[in-house]
Structure formats: structure tokens, C-alpha cells
Amino acid sequence: MTAPVSGLETVELPEMPSLSRLYVAAARDAARKLVGRASARVSLPRARHHVAGVRPDLVKMTEYQTLLGETKRDVAPAGYVHTLAFPAAMSVMGREDFPLPLLGMVHLRNSVEYLLPIRYDDLLEVWAWAENLAGHRAGTQVELVVEVRHAGNDDVAWRGTSTYLAKGVYLPGVDKPGLNGQRDEFSPPAPTALWRLASETGREYAAVSGDFNPIHLSSISARALGMRRSIAHGMYTASRALAEVGPQKGDTFTWDVAFEAPVFLPARVCLSITDIADDDGTWARSEFVGWNASSGRRHFRGTIARL
């Protein structure tokens, strides 16, 4: 995993694709893929997408830092790098030969290794591919891997693995894990913070991340895709928890989150962050969990840890 997987054909993209155009294309293709379900592909594209000459946008990064409550440092927040690089992964998911429908995919988990600090003025290269197509009790899951390197440096600076579930899609020959995905009982701990998320939260994160998936934008657009109300982006909640872990994490760390019950907007979300130190008292990791302040249902949980 340290280098782009071998045996994949590299597809050069002239520039970072636009997510909104990918969504439009996805909607156009949705019907066609449904029709073609009978002959659905059971393998992932043998391709990795590569975009060179990617540079953070200081204005966008500042908007991101403002919305997520990040101090405006010159080093890019790990969540901002995700918004910058993930369109490359979306372009893999939008390929003709990608076996799962892009629209309606559920973000199950996200795992990031931030290995070398990325400054707003760094020139970057992005690689993205799909791997580990696997059965899930509710459908089929797939991992989208994104790697970011500084131009001219072979070492990975940032690597993200996003696990998505295509609900209700079962591909022939893809194994279903047995009890995998069973959830443990959750009783909320004492909160350390309370988020009051307004109904604009989805639109605001869409504006800074470029992720205009209709399920996040408004109740009407969400209902069109079968949700009862709009939901917060999982990455908004994960990125905000990351920001609230604070400066102790430093510039490089790992950041893992698992998403559970969706956050229907508006919402009051309780958060608990637990800092765990080594024997000598230095920070080792912070565990976080978020739940609905009224129902107590768990929305997400994760860990930010020293490398």
C-alpha cells in the first residue's frame, strides 16, 4: 500500500474533476446502471487516476478552517486535504466500468494517515483507485484509496481510505461476511461538547468541500433520494471532531472514523473526546464518539492517534 498498486493502468486526468459534474453524470447514468444490473460487473476498474499539479486554494482552505473551527494555520487540515483530493476518487467511482452506483452510496468508514505536513502553497500529485470490493450484510462495500504526494517526492504525504456501501446491491461471487458489522450496545458517556447543527450545515460543508450530494443540501433534494430529511456530511462530523481534538495531535497523525446513524438536520449532537497518554504523560491518542442528544443513538466514533 505504500506505492500505487501495481498492475493498474494509470489514467492521467488533466485537472481535478468537479464533483458537481460527477454527480450530474452519476444521475444520468443511474438509470442505465439499474437497467444493466443483470449483467453487473463483479470486478473493480483496473485503473488508478492520477492528477498532477494540484495546489491547495488558500481561500477555500480558509473557508474550510472557518467552518470547521480549525485555527487558521498554513498547514492544511487533514480534512481539507480530503476535500481537495477526493474528487479523484469520485472520478474512479464515476467510471463506466465501476460496478456500483455512485449515487446513494453510504460512507461507512474513513481512515487517514497524515504523514508529511502539506502547506497551502505546496504543489501536489494525487492518485486514486478502488480496491477490496466485498460483501456486506446490507449490500456491497468498496474502498476508495487516495494518495497525496508532494511533487517530486515519492513519499506519501497523505493517504485516505474511504469505505462505501452500495445498499441493496449484491454482486454475484462477492462474499458476504457473517456477523461482520454487528453493532455493540452504546450507552452515552458524559459529553465534553455539544454541537447545535442548523439545517444549513449540509449546504455550508458542501460549499467548502465541493461535495454537493443532494442528500446533504435540503429536505426536498434529500427526499428525492429517499431520505426523510437532509443529513450532515459524515466528513463534516469527522473533521469537526478532528478540529476539536486540538493542537496536541500535531501536524501528522492517523485519523479513523466509523459512521453509524446518519445525522438528520437540524440536530443536537453530543461529543465526547477522551485523551489517552503514554506512561510518560505524552499524548498518544484521542478517542471520540458522537451521539444524538435526544435519542442517544450513536452517529460516529473514531480515533486520532500519533503516528
Binding site: 458524559a190 465534553t192 476539536e244 481534538v245 486540538g246 465526547s272 473526546i273 485523551d275 484521542s286
Partner: peptide, 8 residues
């Protein structure tokens, strides 16, 4: 001052 942010 105390480190209250994460409930210490």
C-alpha cells in the same frame, strides 16, 4: 487554569 476541553 484547568484543561477542561476534553473533561480532564
Amino acid at each position: 487554569a484547568v484543561d477542561f476541553v476534553h473533561g480532564k
